[in-house]
C-alpha cells in the first residue's frame, strides 16, 4: 500500500500559471477520477506526480519520500499517458521486456492474456500500431506493472466502444485481484461514473473538488418547473447552472437545499448525474462552494 501526498504543487510555464497550490492525498486502493476541461492542468499534474516534469514549487511525497530523482519511490507509481515513449521499431513483446526492467514484478501472464483478448499481435512493431492499439498497448502495460499507484491519462483514446468496455472490465478484474490505487483522467465521464470512488476536479489550475462520488451526487440537484417558481425556490441557493425550454426551467443546485422552503406542486427536485454536475461546475461563470 502506497500513499501519495501532494503539498502545495504549483506550476508555471513562462508567465502562465497552470497549477495553483494543489494539495491532496491519494488513499491506498482507491479509484479516483481526475476530471477537468481541456487545458485545466490534469496532464501537467500527472507528469509532476511521476517526476517527468518538475513542479515550480511544492512537493510530491510517495510514502513520505520526495519523488525527485528517487527511483525507489517512482517504482511504486506508473503513468500511462498520451505520449508515445517507445522506439518505433521496437516490437510489442520487447516493450513488455523493457518495461520489466523498471518494474521487475511485471505480470507477463496477464499481459499475454490481455493482448489475446484485445487482439494485439505481440510481434508487431510499435510504429505499425494504430492510434487505438497504441492506447491498448499502453493500457495493457499499465494493468500489468506491479506499481501500487497507476495513473491513466486518457486510457480510452482512440478505442472503439467494445474495447473501451473490455478495458474497464479488465480494470475492475485486476483491481479485485490486486487492489491498488488508480487515477483515471478522461473526458468520457459517463463511462467511469460507476467505477470511480472519488472525484478530483481541477478548474483553471485549482483543485476545486476532492470528495467521494456518492457524497457529490447526494448534494447535487435539478430543480425543474415553471421559470418563476423554480427561481423563487432556488433563490440564494448555490445554483451552478440552468437549462431552459420556453418557460420551463431547470436550475442545477450544488449543496444544501433549504428544507424550510415549500416546494410548489409544479416544481420537482431530482438528482443529477456526474456528467451534468461536471459540465455545470466547469462552465466559465460557475463557482464551486
Amino acid at each position: 500500500m502506497t500513499e501519495v501526498t501532494l503539498n502545495q504543487i504549483s506550476k508555471t510555464f513562462g508567465k502562465q500559471t497552470v497549477l495553483k497550490e494543489i494539495s491532496f492525498q491519494l488513499k491506498p486502493n482507491t479509484i479516483y477520477g481526475l476530471l477537468g476541461r481541456n487545458g485545466a492542468g490534469k496532464s501537467t499534474l500527472l507528469n509532476i506526480l511521476t517526476n517527468r516534469i518538475p513542479a515550480s514549487s511544492g512537493e510530491v511525497q510517495i510514502d513520505g519520500q520526495s519523488n525527485i530523482n528517487n527511483d525507489a519511490a517512482l517504482g511504486k507509481i506508473y503513468l500511462m499517458s498520451e505520449q508515445n515513449l517507445y522506439p518505433s521499431r521496437m516490437k510489442v513483446f520487447q516493450i513488455f521486456r523493457q518495461t520489466a526492467l523498471f518494474y521487475p514484478g511485471f505480470d507477463f501472464e496477464l499481459a499475454h492474456q490481455l493482448t489475446a483478448k484485445f487482439g494485439l499481435n505481440e510481434n508487431l512493431r510499435f510504429s505499425r500500431l494504430s492510434t487505438g492499439y497504441h492506447s491498448i498497448l499502453k493500457d495493457i502495460i499499465a494493468l500489468s506493472v506491479d506499481a501500487d499507484v497507476v495513473l491513466l491519462d486518457e486510457p480510452t483514446l482512440g478505442l472503439d466502444a467494445n474495447h473501451r468496455e473490455l478495458f474497464y472490465q479488465e480494470l475492475m478484474e485486476t483491481y479485485a485481484d490486486r487492489p491498488r490505487t488508480f487515477v483515471i483522467s478522461t473526458h468520457l465521464i459517463e463511462e467511469i461514473a460507476g467505477l470511480i470512488e472519488n472525484v478530483l476536479l481541477i478548474k483553471d489550475g485549482n483543485l476545486v473538488l476532492n470528495d467521494s462520488t456518492e457524497n457529490l451526487l447526494a448534494r447535487s440537484y435539478a430543480v425543474t418547473g415553471p421559470e418563476k417558481q423554480v427561481q423563487e425556490y432556488t433563490k440564494g441557493l448555490n445554483v451552478i447552472g440552468h437549462d431552459s425550454l420556453g418557460k420551463l426551467r431547470s436550475d442545477y443546485v450544488f449543496g444544501k437545499l433549504d428544507d424550510e422552503r415549500i416546494l410548489p406542486d409544479t416544481v420537482s427536485v431530482d438528482g443529477i448525474d456526474l456528467k451534468k454536475l461536471f459540465i455545470n461546475l466547469t462552465n466559465r461563470e460557475s463557482e464551486v462552494h
Binding site: 479509484i31 468496455e165 478484474e173 483491481y175 479485485a176 460507476g194 467505477l195 470512488e197
Partner: peptide
C-alpha cells in the same frame, strides 16, 4: 458484478 457492469466493488 463489478466487472460485468463496471461498478466500483465498494459500491
Amino acid at each position: 458484478i463489478s466487472r460485468d457492469f463496471q461498478i466500483n466493488p465498494a459500491t
